[in-house]
Structures are given as C-alpha cells and as structure tokens.
C-alpha cells in the first residue's frame, strides 16, 4: 500500500511544482481583487483534479496489469486510490486554508470565515464528485469515463437552471414543506454534510472493490 501511495506522489512530482507558480499567480489576483473566498476553494479543486491525472498515468503505463502481479491485493489497489483522493483533497484544504489566512493578513480583510466556508463546501463537492466518478473510472478506465465525468458536472447545472426558469416563470411554486426542510438542513449543515460524505464514500468504495474484483486486464 505504501508503495502505491509513493508511486502516486512520485508521479505527481512535476504537477506539484507547477502549484508553486499558481500560488503566486492566485495570490496576486486575490490581493488585486481584495477577496479571497473564490481563490480559497480553487486549491481544493486543483488538488482534486490531480486524482484524475493519477488514473491517467496508471492507464497510460498499463500499471494495473503489473500491480496485479505484485504482492498487493486487489482491494489494496482500490483503497490506495481512494486514499490518494482524500490525501490530495486534504492537501488542497491545508494549502487553501494557509493561502486564505496569509492573504487575509496581507490585505487585512475580514473574509476569513467566508474563505474557510468556501473551502469546506469545495471539499464536500469534490469528494462527492469522486464518489460518483471513481466506480465508473474503475469499470471503464479514465478515458472512457470522461463522458460520465462531464455528465456529472453538467447535471446539477442543468437542474438548477431548469428550476430557476420554472420558478421565475411562476410555473412552479415551492411547497412550504420543502422550504422548511431546506431551512432545517441548513441549520444542521455541518453535521449533515460530513455524514452524507462518509456514507457516499463507503458505498462508492464498496462498488469500486466489487468492480475491480471482477475486472479483466
């Protein structure tokens, strides 16, 4: 397992170097715009995208075929990928938080809470996104899973746009109950989101392991 994680980090060496440059760029942009909330979560997203790169690297090298011949179990191979996804997201959170704090100190802004909230939301979205997409990547490889990836990206937008249109046309009136439910959810959001994320992770991991066990190479 440790070997697999090291393999992934070695593969990302180059990418991580680019991040140094991006930090400076975003730093300047955040200072210029006097707002950090947008730039805070962008690091979470950037780190998270690296998980996709890891799958691409492995697919290109046909690494999994070799990995099967090593003293590593199939479950371990799947675990390492989820672990890397979480580690990279965590790195994004730490990096993003440090970035937010430092820039806030520099520009003497009080948008720290906003920034950290945006990081939290970004983290949850990223993990949920991967919970959906990893089983597809495990099944069909990252190249073929790309279409699904776009769909996962697009569906929430389409729904929100459609609802927005219906609401503004007056075709659809939101029932009182739904608004109440949404308000209750918002009250307990710091509890609900982590629970949803953990459940999604467990289900997604279970499915991916099943797929990988049956996969042919």
């Amino acid at each position: 397992m440790k070997g697999l994680i090291l393999k992934d980090f070695i593969n990302l060496k180059k990418n991580l170097k680019i991040f140094g440059g991006l930090t400076v760029l975003y730093g300047v942009m955040a200072i210029a715009s006097d707002d950090t909330s947008f730039f805070s979560s962008i690091f979470v997203l950037l780190y998270a995208i690296l998980t996709l790169s890891l799958y691409s690297y492995d697919d290109m090298a046909k690494w999994d075929v070799f990995a099967q011949t090593c003293p590593i179990s199939k479950d371990n191979i799947v675990q390492s990928k989820y672990l890397m996804m979480l580690l990279l997201t965590l790195l994004g959170v730490v990096y993003g938080s440090l970035f937010t704090i430092i820039i806030n100190i520099i520009i003497k802004s009080d948008s720290l809470l906003n920034g950290l909230q945006s990081i939290g939301a970004g983290t949850a979205i990223v993990i949920l996104f991967y919970c959906i997409i990893i089983p597809f990547i495990t099944k069909m490889g990252v190249e073929k899973a790309r279409l699904i990836l776009f769909a996962v990206y697009a569906i929430p937008f389409v729904i929100v746009l459609a609802m927005n249109k219906m609401l503004s046309n007056g075709d659809f009136v939101v029932p009182e109950m739904l608004i109440k439910l949404a308000n209750t959810c918002m009250e307990y959001i710091y509890l609900i989101v982590p629970i949803v994320v953990i459940i999604a992770l467990s289900i997604s991991y279970g499915i991916s392991v099943l797929i990988y066990q049956k996969k042919e190479f």
Partner: peptide, 16 residues
C-alpha cells in the same frame, strides 16, 4: 506472489 517475477511485452512502468 512476492516470489514471482513477471515481465510483460511493454514495460508497464510510468514514463516519468
């Protein structure tokens, strides 16, 4: 498994 060495047609190792 650790006593088996396998070599495939391609190298199966990462380019970088």
């Amino acid at each position: 498994k650790s006593q088996i060495g396998v070599v495939f047609d391609g190298s199966n190792l990462h380019d970088n």
